[in-house]
Computed example of a mutant assay.
Amino acid sequence: MASTVLGAEVRDRVPLGGGAARVRLADGRTVVVKDGDEAAIAAEAAGLRWLGAAGGARVPAVLDVNGGRLVTELVAGGTPGTRAAEELGRALARTHAAGAPAFGAAPPGGPADARIGAAPMRNAPAPSWPEWYATDRLLPYLRTARDAGTLTGDAARAIEAVADRLPELAGAAEPPARLHGDLWSGNVLWSPEGAVLIDPAAHGGHRETDLAMLALFGCPHLGTVLAAYDAAAPLAAGWRDRVPLHQLFPLLVHVVLFGGGYAAQALSAARAALRAA
């Protein structure tokens, strides 16, 4: 960590994990500083700006980007409540509705080679969601996991079947949505002013993916969030049945990053997606 940030001397630094730290400056400000790979930092900064420009779900303001360092505003701690959950649902609907140029499109100024957590993630525009989801989201991580021996046999075959059948599994066609892209509950901070979304892997995708990821590891007042979203921007028929399909990508990322412990969950999601057809 540098001795100065935003032109002010660093007085105190508290690690937050993931290369980030809460930093208190001599001029009285407290900010969050994240150090990391330059391309990953550029992608995160571009994603925060793109999401923030949507006028929907709140994200931390980007204060500075310098090579492999990102400085953002600090989000004050708060407690999740029903009203904040309702507003998150409505705000997330506005973010998604702001759209993207294409499925797989990176945020303006963001690199094509980005990351989701510590895993590489390629953002390349594609003409349809089923084609893109199979080619750029499911199959690359399946290959990596299979090569590592962490996902084989029935699980690999089931995921390949999902990729082959995506045109019939995808549901009604929708336009590209502006996605947070890594919207698990740990990336939703509850401030006194409401929910704030951090650590995006932003790109153009299917709006059901963000909602499915919220459900994957649990989110406070999830039912309220989803009901408010559906009231603001009604979801297509059968969306609940497609939750496992959209959870399959983050589960594959977890298999790649953390090993075969997630292989059973990936297999269950793949089988559920196939049954829903």
Rank of each mutant, 00 (worst) to 15 (best):
V23P: 01
A272M: 13
A172M: 01
R115T: 15
T95G: 13
A114I: 03
D113K: 15
G261K: 08
A212T: 01
A201S: 13
V5P: 01
V253D: 08
A102N: 04
L6Q: 12
P108M: 08
A54K: 13
L139D: 11
E174C: 00
A42N: 06
E44A: 12
G52W: 02
L252S: 13
T209F: 13
P125K: 12
V32R: 04
A202F: 03
D147A: 15
T30R: 08
H206W: 03
L169P: 00
A156W: 03
A53Y: 02
A177F: 01
A148T: 09
W190K: 10
E174Y: 05
Y229W: 05
K34D: 04
D154A: 15
P127T: 13
G204P: 04
D35V: 14
G186K: 01
A227R: 10
A76T: 07
G19C: 01
L214F: 09
A269V: 00
L216E: 05
A57I: 11
N123D: 10
L6V: 07
A46Q: 12
G47K: 08
H180P: 11
G109Q: 03
P200F: 03
Q247R: 14
L189I: 13
L6A: 12
T224C: 02
A46C: 07
L245W: 00
V75H: 08
P140E: 11
A266Q: 03
R137T: 07
T224R: 11
A172Q: 10
H180F: 00
S185Q: 07
D182Y: 03
G153I: 01
R146T: 14
A112N: 09
V62H: 02
V75R: 09
R165Q: 13
A233Y: 09
R90P: 12
A276T: 02
L88Q: 09
R24Y: 00
L6S: 11
V14A: 14
L252G: 09
A61K: 12
N66W: 06
A266H: 03
E38P: 13
R11L: 15
L74G: 07
G77C: 03
D113W: 13
A105R: 08
G194Q: 07
G19F: 01
V31A: 02
W129N: 12
V33Y: 00
P244R: 03
L16Q: 06
G56E: 11
A236M: 02
V255C: 10
M213R: 05
D37L: 05
A202N: 05
H96C: 11
V255Y: 09
A105G: 10
A215T: 01
D241N: 12
A106W: 02
A163R: 06
A277C: 14
V62D: 01
P120I: 05
D210Q: 07
N123E: 09
S268P: 00
G218T: 05
S185H: 05
L16W: 02
